[in-house]
């Protein structure tokens, strides 16, 4: 059994890559079913899209990644042109929070995840 030290990273406390694997199917299913935002996710192959959602979840879980704010700007610029705005961003956060609640992640850790995602808002929305 692994013991979790009090100052282990959020990503480790959530369960690392295995937690991302567990969350990605649930999260992606919610996004597809959400008519507020699903039009942003069509036209890309489901496998590729799921892989990108893993990248998203890894970031939000505080995991290791090499994305910069500029990457987030560039990566979502096409979507901003399509009309991506705060309401869509909020919808993604909502789906993220309900995914974590389905996985029985404690509220304080969920708050940390949402805070990380929130910190990317201006980059994602290209402001």
């Amino acid at each position: 059994m692994s013991t979790i030290t009090p100052n282990a990273s959020l990503y480790e406390r959530l369960g690392g890559a295995a937690a991302v694997d567990a969350a990605v199917n649930i999260f992606y299913r919610k996004v597809i079913a959400d008519s507020r935002i699903n039009h942003f996710f069509t036209g890309v192959d489901m496998d590729r899209q799921a892989a990108k959602q893993k990248a998203f979840l890894t970031m939000a879980f505080g995991g290791p990644h090499n994305y910069t704010g500029l990457d987030m700007r560039r990566g979502h610029a096409r979507l901003v042109e399509m009309g991506l705005n705060d309401s869509h961003f909020d919808a993604v956060l909502e789906n993220l929070a309900s995914t974590l609640s389905e996985l029985a992640v404690p509220a304080d850790m969920t708050d940390e995840v949402i805070a990380i995602a929130e910190s990317t808002r201006s980059d994602v929305l290209g402001r």
């Binding site: 991302v20 590729r48 990108k52 893993k54 990248a55 290791p64 090499n66």
Partner: peptide, 9 residues
């Protein structure tokens, strides 16, 4: 793309 083992590019 991601250089972190997630995006599968």
């Amino acid at each position: 793309s991601c250089r972190s083992g997630f995006c599968q590019t």
